[in-house]
Amino acid sequence: MTTFPPAQADASAPASDMAFSAAERSAVYRAIFERRDMRHFAGGTVAPDAMRRLLTAAHHAPSVGFMQPWRFLRVASSTLRTRLHALVEQERRVTAQALGEREEAFMRLKVEGLREAAELWVVALAEGREKHIFGRRTLPQMDLASAACAIQNLWLAARAEGLGVGWVSLFDPIAVADLLQMPAGAEPIALLCIGPVHAFYEEPMLQKERWAKRCTLDDLLFEDAWGQALGQPVPKP
């Protein structure tokens, strides 16, 4: 499956002598464009050394002020997994009700793979984050942004390893923190379902199910002023 734009795989000479080779560049773009938020898993297992590689990739993500706010907790207990699934199901129903006229369509979607995935990991923001001021004095949410980069690193590494990842955020963070005995100030942000899949979706599942579609890139690019199209300078007053 090759879903990335052909231009991204162009073997023409790189713009910099520090660039990767054409094959290496193509592999990077392939991982980006073929990454999927997976809900369907094939059971099985993830080898410990492969899981370690994914976590190492996550830990090498950028973080504002080098604060490294991410923490990863493996859910090995089947009882805990069942209780987490119950919390997700509870929030799924509340979310459906909040969607109003789209409630029934939402309830038809498969939104998680907690019971089928080989591995379940909880990603959380560590306690004591308030002590990190560098880069966060006016933008304290940079801890969350940094942790999201770690998750993306893991996601891309997993795709390269042939493993699926699904990010589940349908849960009450206080309930999950209590269940996993997190210290005060720690905040769960993701339940990551990780493991073998029968196949990767040809396109994002929510796009395939016509829940939403990817925006046109040019509609999101501005220059000099909000809403001013790229390449169209702001008129002089």
Results as ranks from 00 to 15, higher is better:
4 F>Q: 08
7 A>H: 12
8 Q>H: 13
13 A>N: 03
15 A>M: 06
17 D>F: 12
18 M>G: 00
21 S>G: 06
28 V>H: 01
29 Y>D: 01
32 I>Y: 05
35 R>V: 00
35 R>W: 02
40 H>N: 08
41 F>A: 02
43 G>K: 08
46 V>P: 03
50 A>T: 11
50 A>M: 03
52 R>W: 03
58 A>Y: 01
58 A>H: 07
61 A>P: 04
61 A>E: 00
62 P>V: 00
62 P>G: 06
62 P>H: 07
63 S>G: 00
66 F>N: 13
67 M>Q: 13
69 P>I: 00
69 P>G: 05
70 W>C: 05
78 S>C: 06
80 L>F: 10
82 T>M: 07
84 L>W: 13
86 A>V: 09
90 Q>Y: 10
95 T>K: 15
96 A>V: 05
96 A>R: 07
97 Q>R: 09
101 E>H: 09
101 E>C: 01
101 E>R: 11
102 R>M: 14
108 R>V: 00
108 R>K: 12
109 L>T: 10
111 V>Y: 09
119 E>W: 01
123 V>G: 03
124 A>T: 10
125 L>F: 02
133 I>R: 06
140 P>K: 08
143 D>N: 12
146 S>L: 04
150 A>F: 01
155 W>H: 04
158 A>C: 04
159 R>W: 00
165 V>A: 07
169 S>G: 13
169 S>R: 06
171 F>M: 01
174 I>A: 09
181 Q>N: 14
181 Q>C: 07
182 M>H: 05
183 P>C: 03
184 A>Y: 03
187 E>R: 15
187 E>H: 14
187 E>N: 14
188 P>T: 10
189 I>D: 11
192 L>M: 02
192 L>S: 04
193 C>E: 05
195 G>T: 01
197 V>P: 13
198 H>S: 15
200 F>Q: 12
201 Y>Q: 07
201 Y>A: 13
203 E>Y: 15
209 E>S: 14
210 R>W: 09
211 W>H: 02
214 R>S: 13
218 D>K: 15
218 D>R: 15
219 D>R: 13
221 L>R: 07
223 E>W: 07
226 W>A: 15
228 Q>L: 04
236 K>L: 12
237 P>W: 05
